[in-house]
């Protein structure tokens, strides 16, 4: 078990007021709330029962009342641990840094509420930490209208730039929620063009208009934020690329799987799921020889053909 005594102490100090406020709480619920196993909660309760005021007579000990049949628990004597301990340093950092980040998302949250919550936390001894800072997402002009469509649950018409296909499309979408992640904000919406749920980067919405139709309410929304906003076409097989040092940033930028270690020249081989063959050709072309397609000779040939054709325009004396 890797848990330290301090972690366990922190949990036990939190368990007592948590149970006191919820007499008869189920042990399974405690396990879920505190992110440990039910067995661990049972061990913690056993330990609480033998701790208490110096003297350690039965009346001095924390009185944990277990209902073994129902699997529930209450606390009859808390030995002075009535209230939660002040926020620890990590807790204060987690909350205040996050609040400041939210305050920087204009139009998404009530900024006054964020600042007043921060002020109350500061009064409670959890001052804002300066050691971690987050710039959440670049501002995007369409954000206000997107937010309004969510609040009013109305369908939205958008003109959207799809970078992976280098095209502009017009779509009608039913907004589901806004995700802010990895420096960008995204609209998660049911797209009537793709006939599926898609994620639209708000700064790539060129134009938006609220429609009169109500948005269809999704039957079920996944609580989790998806790992990736990019939906590779499952029909497109992954392609193997060799990235020379000048193109290794590709591996940081896109979802790739590195195959093996770098060679002596620093080149790495990766497997990438491209949105389409066209996108891959554009990418490799734009890297000017710093990336090579390993296992699709047809695409590698297209890169050379397009580069040669493009160069012809520059050697033309009239251009």
């Amino acid at each position: 078990m890797s848990e330290t005594a301090t972690d366990r102490l922190a949990r036990m100090l939190a368990l007592v007021p948590y149970i006191s406020r919820r007499p008869g709480v189920a042990i399974g619920d405690l396990a879920a709330e505190f992110g440990v196993s039910a067995g661990q909660i049972a061990d913690d309760l056993d330990l609480l029962m033998v701790c208490g005021l110096p003297g350690y007579y039965p009346d001095d000990l924390i009185d944990v009342v277990l209902d073994d049949e129902g699997g529930t628990v209450s606390i009859a004597f808390d030995a002075g641990i009535e209230r939660p301990v002040r926020l620890s340093h990590d807790e204060a950092v987690a909350l205040t840094v996050a609040l400041r980040t939210l305050a920087d998302l204009p139009g998404l949250v009530d900024r006054d509420a964020v600042f007043s919550a921060l002020a109350k936390l500061e009064q409670a001894g959890a001052g804002a930490a300066a050691e971690v800072r987050i710039a959440a997402a670049a501002p995007a002009p369409a954000l206000g209208l997107v937010r309004q469509s969510l609040d009013e649950a109305r369908r939205l018409w958008i003109r959207y730039y799809t970078a992976s296909r280098d095209t502009l499309t017009e779509r009608e979408v039913d907004p589901i929620r806004l995700l802010v992640t990895d420096g960008h904000s995204y609209l998660e919406a049911y797209c009537h063009l793709a006939l599926a749920v898609r994620h639209f980067r708000i700064d790539r919405i060129e134009q938006a208009r609220l429609l009169d139709e109500p948005a269809q309410v999704p039957l079920w929304v996944d609580e989790e934020v998806p790992e990736r906003m990019f939906h590779p076409d499952p029909a497109v097989a992954p392609v193997t690329l060799r990235l020379h040092p000048a193109a290794r940033w590709i591996a940081e930028y896109y979802e790739v799987q590195q195959l093996g270690e770098p060679d002596e020249g620093g080149a790495i081989v990766v497997s990438i799921r491209a949105a389409s063959d066209d996108w891959l050709v554009r990418l490799v072309l734009s890297l000017g020889g710093a990336a090579e397609i390993v296992d699709r000779p047809d695409l590698a040939a297209q890169v050379i053909t397009r580069a040669t054709a493009a160069l012809a325009a520059y050697s033309d004396p009239n251009s």
């Binding site: 939660p84 301990v85 987690a94 980040t101 939210l102 009530d110 919550a117």
Partner: peptide, 22 residues
């Protein structure tokens, strides 16, 4: 030792709930 009693408005609670899950 203990966290003082804190009372938050519904919109402050909404902000805190978002912050706690960031």
């Amino acid at each position: 030792f203990s966290l003082p009693e804190l009372t938050f408005t519904p919109s402050e609670k909404a902000a805190l709930a978002l912050a706690g899950r960031l």
